[in-house]
C-alpha cells in the first residue's frame, strides 16, 4: 500500500510537471495552459475551503479573500513598487490577518448561519473594493507588471517573466508548484495532531471543548490558513490577467470554490483538486455546446450529486470495498 501510494504520487508529479507541457507542445493547444493554470490556482483556493469544511464549517467566502489578496498585490506592485515575489506571501498574510479579525466573531456561528455570513462577506469585499479610493473603484487596477526576476544572493532563481519566450508555461509551472506545495501542507495538517483536533471539532465541538481542546483558537487558526490559501491564489490570478476589478471575484466564484470541494469529496485531501479539475475543465470543454453549455453543466452536476452524493473520490472507496 505504502509503495503504491508513493508510486501514485510520483506519477502525479511527473504528469503535471513534465507530461502536460510535453503534450501541449506536441499538440500545439497553447490555450490549455490558461485553463490548467486556472485549475491549479482555483484548487489552491478550494483547498482552503476544504480545510474549513474539515472543522465543520461551510465556507462560501473564499472569493472575498481571493479578491483581497489580489488587490493587496496589485496595490503594492503599482503604487509601492514591490516585486511580485514579495507580494505573494504578503497578500496571503494580509488575508490571514484580516480573517482573524473577521473570524473571531463569525466563527461562533455554525451550519447555515456561518455559510450565509461568509456569502455576505463576499459581497462586502466587492462593495468595499468599489467604495475605497485606493482600489480605484469600478475602473479597477490595470496594466500591472508581469512578475520580475527573483534572485537570492545574486543567483537568479526565476528569470523575469516579461523577457521569457513563453510566460504561459512559466505561469503554469508556478501555479502547479504552488498547488503541489499547498496540498502537501494540507496533507501534513490533516495527518498531524492538528488534523486530529480538527476532526474532533467536526464531529462535536462541545465534546471537544469539554476534554480540553481550545476550540476558539483552533477554528480561528484553521480559518486563517484557509484564507491564506485564498489570498495567494488571488495574487497569482491578478499577475496572470495583469488587472483586477471589484467583479474579479464575486459570489458565484465563492459558491464555485465550495462546489469544487463537494464534487471532489469532503473526506479526501485530494478532493478539492479533483473537483476543480472536473468542474472547471468540464465547463471549458462544454463551450462547444454554446447556448446549452449551462444547461448541460448544471444537469451533469445534479446527476453527479444523485449518483455520488459523497463526491467523486468516494468511487475509490467503493472499489476498495469490493476487494
Amino acid at each position: 500500500m505504502k509503495t503504491s501510494k508513493k508510486l501514485g504520487l510520483a506519477l502525479f508529479l511527473l504528469a503535471v510537471f513534465v507530461l502536460v507541457p510535453v503534450m501541449i507542445a506536441a499538440t500545439g493547444r497553447k490555450d490549455l495552459y490558461y485553463t490548467l493554470t486556472s485549475v491549479a490556482l482555483l484548487s489552491i483556493g478550494s483547498a482552503g475551503v476544504w480545510l474549513t469544511f474539515y472543522i465543520g464549517r461551510i465556507n462560501i467566502g473564499q472569493g472575498a479573500y481571493a479578491l483581497m489578496g489580489g488587490y493587496v498585490s496589485a496595490i503594492l506592485m503599482t503604487q509601492a513598487g514591490f516585486s511580485f515575489w514579495a507580494t505573494l506571501p504578503l497578500g496571503g498574510l494580509f488575508c490571514a490577518l484580516i480573517s482573524v479579525g473577521i473570524g473571531v466573531p463569525i466563527l461562533r456561528l455554525r451550519g447555515v448561519y456561518f455559510a450565509m455570513v461568509t456569502l455576505v462577506l463576499t459581497e462586502v469585499a466587492r462593495l468595499t473594493a468599489l467604495a475605497l479610493p485606493v482600489t480605484n473603484g469600478a475602473k479597477g487596477i490595470t496594466s500591472i507588471p508581469l512578475p520580475g526576476a527573483l534572485s537570492i544572493g545574486g543567483v537568479t532563481l526565476i528569470p523575469d517573466f516579461a523577457t521569457m519566450a513563453n510566460p504561459k508555461l512559466a505561469f503554469y509551472l508556478l501555479a502547479v508548484t504552488m498547488m503541489v506545495a499547498s496540498y502537501a501542507v494540507l496533507w501534513r495538517i490533516v495527518n498531524s495532531r492538528l488534523g486530529h483536533l480538527c476532526r474532533s471539532l467536526q464531529q462535536n465541538e462541545e465534546l471537544a471543548a469539554s476534554i480540553g481542546v481550545n476550540t476558539a483558537y483552533l477554528r480561528v487558526l484553521v480559518y486563517a490558513i484557509s484564507s491564506f490559501f485564498g489570498g495567494i491564489s488571488g495574487v497569482v490570478f491578478v499577475a496572470i490577467s495583469q488587472s483586477i476589478y471589484p467583479s474579479s471575484f464575486v459570489v458565484t466564484d465563492s459558491v464555485n470554490f465550495m462546489l469544487y470541494c463537494f464534487v471532489g469529496g469532503l473526506s479526501y485531501v485530494a478532493g478539492p483538486m479533483v473537483g476543480t479539475l472536473l468542474l472547471y475543465f468540464g465547463w471549458d470543454l462544454l463551450t462547444v455546446a454554446k447556448d446549452y453549455q449551462m444547461l448541460i453543466y448544471s444537469s451533469a452536476m445534479i446527476a453527479l450529486m444523485l449518483v455520488l452524493p459523497n463526491g467523486v473520490l468516494s468511487l475509490l472507496d467503493r472499489i476498495g470495498g469490493k476487494k
Binding site: F262, L295, Y297, M305, N310
Partner: peptide, 22 residues
C-alpha cells in the same frame, strides 16, 4: 444517501444554475 447534510447545498446550487440556464 449522503454522509453530510451539507451535500444538499451543492444540489441546491446545481438547481440554481440549472434554472438560470432554463
Amino acid at each position: 444517501r449522503s454522509k453530510r447534510d451539507e451535500s444538499t447545498m451543492l444540489l441546491a446550487a446545481g438547481v440554481a444554475f440549472f434554472l438560470d440556464a432554463v
